[in-house]
Simulated assay, not measured.
Amino acid sequence: METYCGLSFMFLFCRHPLMATCEDSHLKFIQTINNSFYFEETSSAPCETELCSDAFRRREPPISMWIQSKDQKFLVLKTSGKFEFEDRTVHDRGQPDCQFEIQIYQDSLSNKYQSVMLYVCADGEKMMISCKDYKEVCPEPMDPKVLKMIKAAEHKALFRWKCISTGKYKFESTMYPGFFLAFEHVEDMPCLHKLILRHGSMDEVDESGIFYVNKCSP
């Protein structure tokens, strides 16, 4: 209740208990009773920051990044349908198979780390890094509807990332908490690494689970 020039102002707010509201509220005048003004909070359009409980809304735009292992090999999507790390020349690192889009999501829950989706374009199709099980990841075609809004507390292609130091990150699966993206040697080909999931913790120092993430340059 606020009083101004002898008049009392009373604001009545109607809010859904599971929804967040915008900082700028729209008020509709209802009536005056005994020198008091009555208003009702309204919304002319859905708020872009509103999220259903246990949901993730994408933030625009995605960021084009190179993802590298500790020995500076680049993560690429091979024609075999596998994510692997390999050496790339300055020319080859400009190819779309190693330029990953990192889509950041706004989380409706009070979590410490941001949630992201990582995908790469192959033959004109967006392919997500998706958890296959507790150990494996695989490329999976992206559903445009899923990209815009994830209506669940976890998703096979959604990871929480933490900045370890400048340009260095860890990625924890939301589908399998406690499991992180990591790289390991490809059998019989020690010069190559493949992308996997490995059990660990966000604060654990495991070089195989720390990635160098840098913005793609022309």
Rank of each mutant, 00 (worst) to 15 (best):
M1F: 11
E2W: 12
E2S: 08
E2K: 10
Y4S: 11
G6W: 05
G6F: 04
G6S: 03
G6M: 02
S8L: 10
L12I: 01
F13Y: 07
C14Y: 02
L18P: 00
M19T: 04
D24C: 07
S25F: 08
H26V: 10
H26K: 12
L27M: 01
L27Y: 00
L27V: 00
K28C: 05
F29Q: 02
F29V: 02
Q31D: 13
T32R: 14
N34C: 06
F37T: 15
F37R: 14
F39E: 05
E40V: 08
T42I: 05
T42K: 10
P46E: 02
L51W: 01
S53W: 11
S53Y: 14
Q68Y: 08
Q68A: 11
S69R: 06
S69E: 10
K73V: 12
L77D: 01
K78T: 03
S80V: 03
G81C: 01
G81H: 14
K82H: 12
E84C: 09
E84M: 13
E84I: 11
E84N: 10
E86I: 04
D87F: 10
D87N: 15
D87P: 09
D87T: 15
R88C: 11
T89A: 00
T89K: 00
V90H: 01
R93Y: 07
Q95W: 06
D97W: 08
C98N: 09
Q99L: 10
E101Q: 15
I102F: 13
I104P: 05
I104A: 08
Y105W: 04
Y105Q: 01
S108A: 04
S108I: 00
K112W: 07
K112G: 07
M117Y: 08
L118A: 15
Y119T: 05
Y119G: 03
C121H: 05
D123S: 13
G124K: 11
E125H: 13
M127K: 10
M127A: 03
S130M: 08
K132P: 05
Y134Q: 14
K135H: 12
V137N: 01
C138V: 15
C138Y: 14
P139A: 00
P139M: 00
M142N: 05
P144H: 06
L147C: 04
L147A: 09
K148V: 10
M149I: 13
A152F: 09
A152R: 04
A153C: 02
E154R: 04
E154C: 05
E154V: 01
A157C: 03
W161N: 06
W161V: 03
K162S: 09
K162V: 06
I164R: 02
S165Y: 02
K168V: 15
Y169M: 03
S173K: 05
T174N: 04
T174H: 10
M175K: 11
P177Y: 08
P177M: 12
G178V: 05
G178M: 07
F179E: 08
L181T: 08
F183H: 09
H185N: 15
E187Y: 12
D188S: 15
M189W: 02
P190K: 08
L192N: 07
L192M: 09
L192T: 12
L192A: 03
H199D: 13
D203M: 08
D203A: 09
E204R: 11
V205I: 11
V205R: 15
I210E: 15
F211A: 10
F211K: 06
Y212C: 15
N214L: 14
K215P: 12
S217C: 09
P218C: 06
P218S: 12
